[in-house]
């Protein structure tokens, strides 16, 4: 556990040692705030909940935010060569992957938390805005965390496959977009039932959770992808020892 905490602390700390971490969170908050404003103006008079619109605004910028965080996780270590010093200590490969994942996830949660908290703060200071539903807000937070868990694990895996940060960034972005865009992608395929699309759609999951229906299948779906991606990441890291 000591080794895990050392790596976790280093990973989280390094995000705040340079201005990159602060700038990333600030840009993410600004972008989600602007998107939310545009969505509210565009959807004026519609029946869509404020919480749902806010969650979708955060979701739109999540791939970019997570890409910026994940692209350097392993790619930078490989480029500089510190992966060699890291993996020649007595720390296990699974510890390295998990510590980096949770370090990145902690930073993602800080960004998400800041963006998520902007809605209750807005309601608190803007008397014209009708009060938001606490349960819906909590549901939105839960589903966003689940999606973030999944996307960050994809980012960890993709970052491990290359030593070039630009390649890692582009690959990360598109790989993270796949689960978020799974519904439009599958709609192009023939013979796909609407029921299947609804079960896989992130938008549907957000609608469910902000509507107060905390179903288990979406959570299982995202956690399964997360577990698979982290397992694959550990295997990729171990592959240097394969004969």
């Amino acid at each position: 556990m000591r080794k895990f905490m050392a790596l976790f602390g280093k990973e989280l700390g390094s995000a705040f040692l340079s201005p990159l971490g602060y700038v990333t969170v600030a840009v993410f908050m600004s972008a989600t705030g602007w998107t939310f404003l545009q969505a509210v103006q565009a959807q004026e008079g519609s029946r869509m909940q404020l919480e749902t619109m806010h969650a979708i605004s955060v979701l739109i910028w999540m791939p970019v935010f997570i890409t910026v965080i994940c692209m350097r996780l392993f790619a930078e270590e490989k480029r500089v060569g510190t992966i060699e010093t890291l993996l020649t200590t007595s720390v296990r490969d699974v510890t390295v992957v998990l510590a980096k994942y949770f370090g990145a996830m902690a930073f993602v949660l800080i960004g998400l938390g800041a963006a998520w908290a902007s809605l209750p703060l807005l309601v608190l200071h803007a008397p014209d805005v009708e009060a938001v539903d606490g349960g819906a807000l909590l549901g939105a937070g839960i589903i966003l965390v689940l999606v973030a868990l999944c996307c960050t694990s994809i980012g960890v895996l993709v970052s491990m496959l290359t030593r070039n940060q630009i390649v890692a960034a582009i690959s990360c972005f598109w790989a993270i977009c796949v689960p978020l865009m799974i519904t439009p992608l599958m709609q192009t395929l023939p013979y796909v039932r609407q029921e299947v699309l609804d079960r896989l759609s992130v938008e549907q999951h957000i609608l469910l959770y902000t509507g107060g229906i905390l179903q288990a299948p979406p959570a299982v779906f995202y956690l399964t992808i997360t577990a698979f991606m982290l397992f694959a990441a550990v295997r990729v890291l171990e592959s240097r020892r394969w004969i």
Binding site: K10, S14, L17, V80, G81, T82, E84, T85
Partner: peptide, 12 residues
């Protein structure tokens, strides 16, 4: 073990 070119974390 000291690898070639001594890789270190520059921001620490």
């Amino acid at each position: 073990y000291l690898p070639e070119n001594t890789p270190l974390y520059g921001d620490m």
